[in-house]
Amino acid sequence: MRAPPSDLPIVFDQVSLQAGEVAILRGVSMVLRPGAPTALIGPNGAGKTTLIRLAASLMVPTSGRVTWGGKPGTDGARFAVVFQRPVMLRRSAAANVAYALPRCPAGERRLRTNELLLQVGLAHLAQRPARRLSGGEQQRLALARALAREPEVLFLDEPTASLDPASTKTVEDVIRTAAASGTKIVIATQNLGQARRLAADVSFMLRGRVHEVGAAEQFFHAPQTAEAAAFLNGDLVV
């Protein structure tokens, strides 16, 4: 299924975003390569969500540029996003997943939908209106919907921020499975345990900048900067 010319790497080149007087991103340069999951970590307001939104072309940078596989913009790029607060369409859980499969023939679409719901543990709620599901269920449904697109890159913005431990585990299992099957995972999270469990490399963001980049192992054991160390210790004052 995977089209040969890859959309990766995603390259941020001196990307800045200004909202009025406030600088949200300040000259971010980074590269997201194919392979194991990347975690974007950092305190609130560091610019993690903005980075994802820029990568997905939901925003345009004030200066600098984002390229996918060397091409500007996301035309034809196969990616999906799971937002921190995903929007459920006003229809059943199954229909929410099927919605992301518009070009699929009806029979196959039903099969894929069932498969995905099963994968995120929602098969028994398939006909339930999506907006009637709990927060955790909605998050898992959003994940199923994102995976329906068979993305090469899957962005996750705090996917378990408001979930109970059981839901969190289900979500992390699904993410791991997706990563194992070759999907590039980019996960923004404040949950250090989660980053440790999932990510192979880490970008630490602070005040609109990428402060430190490294392999997860190394970052968590021996952070290079004082700010990263402070953040890991839980006493970073923004």
């Binding site: 929007v87 992301a100 697109r149």
Partner: peptide, 10 residues
């Protein structure tokens, strides 16, 4: 409300 989600779903 839907913009980001629908744009991200292309």
């Amino acid at each position: 409300e839907y913009r980001d989600e629908l744009m991200a779903l292309r």
